[in-house]
Each structure stands twice: as structure tokens, then as C-alpha cells.
């Protein structure tokens, strides 16, 4: 196995509806552990993830496992071993929990690891026949993360998995991600710096659609000046910025509506 980065993104640019959302993002995901993708609201974190996956039109270079994938359609890239838990959790509300998980199975790519998923989330087993739309936010997040763990993926991408969850559930999610990171490296988009401090070894910081900083996570978080400059926290002299749960997770500006969705709302 090569020692280079598992995922290497170079000069990723995304233009949606004539607007440049990303100008040139560089990003490496280490072959092990958690890499955090940080940045203020609207910096382009979610767009970066969607661009990597090809869910939005993008240019640049995306190398996964040493292979250039920027021309691959989303499903083909994902089948090379990526589990993706999107920002809005992407749970199919009209399908049951079991069906949501079944959808993530990849026929012909090994046995799905239901044992692991049910061990981590016993609740999903109990609620297998429940419609996912009737679950609580935390339970839906479990479905979303459960789907990424089913396939022995080489990389797990989790986009703000703690967004809008109660503190107790946040801790649970952190535990699960810690566990998941032992099996496969994780690219974690996160606003909650306590989570980052606890989980991440490396971090990439975006600002205005560009990579602003790359390095060890601990180094960044230990430097209050850099934290304030790059992430905009601790401005009011908070003694421990890393414990500060960043207030409203309103990421509307950063969330690009696809062209179709864009037209849909315009037409409605």
C-alpha cells in the first residue's frame, strides 16, 4: 500500500449558476485517522465535499487511492470505497430504517457488515421497520453513519454529523466516529471544535473557497490567534475556544443547490 495521501484534491474549483463557489481547494486525507475540514460558515466546506464526490460540477484534480477520479460519475467513485454521510443526513424519509441500510449495500462487493452497524447502533435494529422520516435527528444521523459503515469503505466522509443534535447525542456520535476511524480514515466537516480536538489529527481550513491552512489539528487549536483568524472563534476573549460550541449552524450560504434544485425553487 502506498504511503501517500488516501485522497488528494488539487485546485478544486466549483462554479454554480455563474458564481464561483470554490476557487482552488487543496486537500489531503491521510491514510489513517481523522482529517478535519474546517472554516467559517460559507467558506465552502460542504461544496468541497460535494465537489469531491461529483455531486456538483467541478474542475481540478481528485485522486482517490492514487487514481484520478474527477471525470468519474458519483456512483462510480463511491463504489471505489467511499461512505458519505451528508450534511442534511440524506435519509430517505419514506423508506424504513432497514430499507435505508439495504440501499447502501453494494451487491458484489462483499458481505454488508450489519454486525458492526447493529453493535454500534442497537437502536437501528430495534427500529428496523420504522419509517426513517419519523426518527429523531440523532437517530437519523445514526442511519446516515450506519450506511457508511456497512461496506468496508476505504474512506468515510461525514459532513457536520453533530449539527443540530443534543449534547448527549453529540458525545455518542463522537464515540462512533472514533470507532469508525479505526476501520477507515475519516474526512470530517465540523464546526464543533470540541469534536475536532477530540477526534482529528490533521486539519484543513478553508476561507472564501480556498485552502487557507493545512497542518496538524492540535497545533492549530493550541494557537488561539490562528484559531481566531481562521475560524473566527474566540473573538470575545473566550478562554478556551476549543470548548466553544459554535453557535447557529446556519450553513445555508455554503450549501449549493444543484442546478436542478436551483431552477426548481426559481420556478416554484
Amino acid at each position: 500500500m502506498s504511503t501517500g495521501p488516501l485522497l488528494a484534491v488539487r485546485d478544486l474549483a466549483v462554479v454554480i449558476g455563474g458564481r464561483h463557489i470554490l476557487h482552488g481547494v487543496d486537500l489531503d486525507v491521510a491514510p489513517s485517522g481523522v482529517t478535519a475540514l474546517l472554516g467559517r460558515n460559507g467558506a465552502g466546506k460542504t461544496t468541497t465535499v460535494r465537489g469531491v464526490l461529483g455531486l456538483v460540477p467541478r474542475t481540478g484534480s481528485v485522486r482517490f487511492l492514487g487514481e484520478e477520479t474527477v471525470r468519474l460519475p458519483t456512483h462510480a467513485l463511491v463504489r471505489r470505497g467511499i461512505g458519505y454521510a451528508p450534511e442534511d443526513r440524506g435519509v430517505f424519509a419514506a423508506l424504513t430504517v432497514a430499507e435505508n441500510l439495504r440501499l447502501a449495500e453494494r451487491p458484489g462487493a462483499g458481505e454488508p457488515a450489519y454486525g458492526l452497524v447493529h453493535e454500534l447502533f442497537p437502536e437501528l435494529k430495534a427500529r428496523a421497520k420504522q419509517l426513517a422520516g419519523t426518527l429523531s435527528g440523532g437517530q437519523q444521523q445514526m442511519v446516515a453513519i450506519g450506511r457508511t459503515l456497512l461496506n468496508g469503505n476505504r474512506l468515510i466522509i461525514a459532513d457536520e454529523p453533530t449539527k443540530g443534535l443534543a449534547p448527549k447525542v453529540v458525545t455518542e456520535v463522537a464515540q462512533v466516529l472514533e470507532r469508525a476511524a479505526q476501520a477507515a480514515p475519516v474526512l470530517l466537516v465540523e464546526q464543533n471544535l470540541a469534536m475536532v480536538r477530540r477526534l482529528a489529527e490533521h486539519c484543513v481550513v478553508l476561507a472564501d473557497g480556498r485552502t487557507a491552512h493545512r497542518g496538524p489539528a492540535a497545533g492549530l487549536l493550541a494557537d488561539p490567534e490562528a484559531t481566531r483568524r481562521l475560524l473566527g472563534v474566540g473573538r470575545r476573549g473566550t478562554a478556551r475556544p476549543e470548548e466553544h460550541l459554535m453557535a447557529p449552524h446556519d450553513n445555508q450560504a455554503a450549501r449549493p443547490a444543484g442546478p436542478a434544485a436551483d431552477n426548481g425553487k426559481a420556478g416554484a
Binding site: L53, L55, P73, T74, H75, A76, V78, R79, I82, Y84, P86, G90, F92, A93, A94, L95, E99, L103, A104, R106, R147, N151, G258
Partner: peptide
Amino acid sequence: RAGVEDRAMVTALGIDV
């Protein structure tokens, strides 16, 4: 059925919709 709800997410699960 899943595609009726959210086509993009189906592809993001590795399925050629």
C-alpha cells in the same frame, strides 16, 4: 422509491441511478 425522494443521494450511495 429512494430515487423519487432524493436522486443525488442514491448516486452518493454508489448506485447508478
